[in-house]
Design a protein around this nucleic acid. Sequence first.
DNA 1: ACTATCGTGGAAAGCGCATTCCCAAGATCT
DNA 2: AGATCTTGGGAATGCGCTTTCCACGATAGT
Lengths: 335, 335
Amino acid sequence: MAIRLTDVADEAGVSLATASRVLNGSARKPAEEISEKVRAAAQKLGYFPNAQAQALARASTKLIGLVVHDIADPYFSSIARGVQKGIQANGIQLLLTSTGGEADREALAVRAFMSHRTDAIILSGSRRFSEDHELAELLESYQTNGGQVAMIGQPFPATGGIQLDNEGAASELAGELLKAGHRRFVVLAGNPDYMTAKHRADGFTGKLKRSGVPVETALYGAFSREGGYLAMGDYLDQAESQETANQICVFCVSDVMALGAIRAIRERGLRIPEDVAIAGFDDIPTLGDVTPSISTARLPLEEIGRLAGEMVVAHSNSKLVVMTGTPVLRESTER
Amino acid sequence: MAIRLTDVADEAGVSLATASRVLNGSARKPAEEISEKVRAAAQKLGYFPNAQAQALARASTKLIGLVVHDIADPYFSSIARGVQKGIQANGIQLLLTSTGGEADREALAVRAFMSHRTDAIILSGSRRFSEDHELAELLESYQTNGGQVAMIGQPFPATGGIQLDNEGAASELAGELLKAGHRRFVVLAGNPDYMTAKHRADGFTGKLKRSGVPVETALYGAFSREGGYLAMGDYLDQAESQETANQICVFCVSDVMALGAIRAIRERGLRIPEDVAIAGFDDIPTLGDVTPSISTARLPLEEIGRLAGEMVVAHSNSKLVVMTGTPVLRESTER
DNA sequence: ACTATCGTGGAAAGCGCATTCCCAAGATCT
DNA sequence: AGATCTTGGGAATGCGCTTTCCACGATAGT
């Protein structure tokens, strides 16, 4: 069906070896005259190297795998964009899988990437406290076989990647909120089985406790927009009956949760920030489009993705970069 | 380095052929006793099939390529998510490339996919009126070689895919806006070299013209958030001096442009919809988080992606599905 | 009882390419 | 002028797997 290198060689009247040497950067450069003939033949025939065959003959596939929870989530799509930027230009292609955050699908994705012999795997999305054992094992065997691994969030000790200082950033954010005069805090803590969610909630509540202004309520739920919406709604409905939901400041462990929470708040006719103040975490691009502007702990998501991409192409495997977030207060927490 | 099928065969004391037959769905099923031995060996050794080698030996790579303009744009990430859903379960992997909307990078991406012998290519992102010739040629040769192609938006005559009735939906939206009582219209038409932008603008202005309420101003610019922001800003600055920007209804040819425009409007202290009404196109998920809610022409983006994914796995190549948008009026155009 | 048929496992031929040898011819040196 | 390098193209091997094609024993058919 497709044109093979053999066809090009025949057309040019040279051997397969020569054709290979001129068309794909080899150490040995055939004579210019011959090279030209080969290039002409390739051009004429519309030759495309078969990446599979090349991968088989060479060691590398020029493929890297990226696994995220949900590509439609701005958090992950920002990272994905960064990764693309980090690896592009090297002629590397990106294999993408969304797992929905399920541990078994994550392992499945890694397995698939291993099958495809991707040169590297970048894992985004939070680790869980429970049963990541299989994943760790897979990645370890992947690494011993020469694969590059970078995790974004809480890298395994053995893998390296980009560690996000969730706890620190959340703590700083709490400090800023205190300075701004807030005294009554509620935390939408998401799913505490996710390390990301837990660290952020802990960082926030820890700082407050140390400051003598403990969090009044911590609410758990899904680590998603829907989760934020439901948790916030439940709280408000219950608080309303007790007339307690006034002048509170709600910290959501992610911006998407905050977005959901905002919806719940608005549906109940409450104003932001007059009635309830709210802050998120991540600073996803979407925030630029909502009013009032939302306070958050800023993570340079695209930059993080780019860095991860660059790390794996540079083969700096077990390197660990710590990325810290910076609190940014905006209208949603003004008082 | 990695475990090969040969190793498994040796371990199990059978031939390579037999091992292959039991581990990878072959028509011929070896005896249960033997199969069990092979599976045990594979399990023990931690065998992973080499997808490259399989691809070379079989015809198919179980890879499909998706090209979008920008994966961080909610429009495209919604589609990407749909595509994933459409192809998952078949053990198919997604190769993703963002092109930034540049024609040459688009062709480059397709070329790369062809090199990787993806079983199918899905093109999202708008076609241009100028020079898509190279792309068309590439895709044609890809198809004659048995590749599946689905384009989302305005499929080439030869490729099939999902055609979006941009013109019709824009026209309907105009109708609804008229019914709602709007009489002064401005169109942020984006970049008219993009077919999508032009069709939407044309559909909108055409309907208005036929109704005897012609558009007052059409503004051009980048087909992006930034473009919407700048175009809207320029218009308002100029209109302000002429005291004409009152009670107008702005139609943006995409939601992201509308988001940009809204920012420009707000920065000038104008209210939506009291001072200026605004409508977009697409109904990206982000809209669920902005206030006031934004009127738009709804396109079922995820569904569209899913459909495209299913089309290519079903090998229904040159099939053409027309997808129509439905206008939905919300707070941003109330009067 | 003897041949025709079937079921099963193994040997071997590719799939398309990179690369290591190998060898011929020209360049360089003494 | 003869010996030693150097240069550059070609034949052949292997990457890991699928898939004919064969051989062989078991079963069935008359």
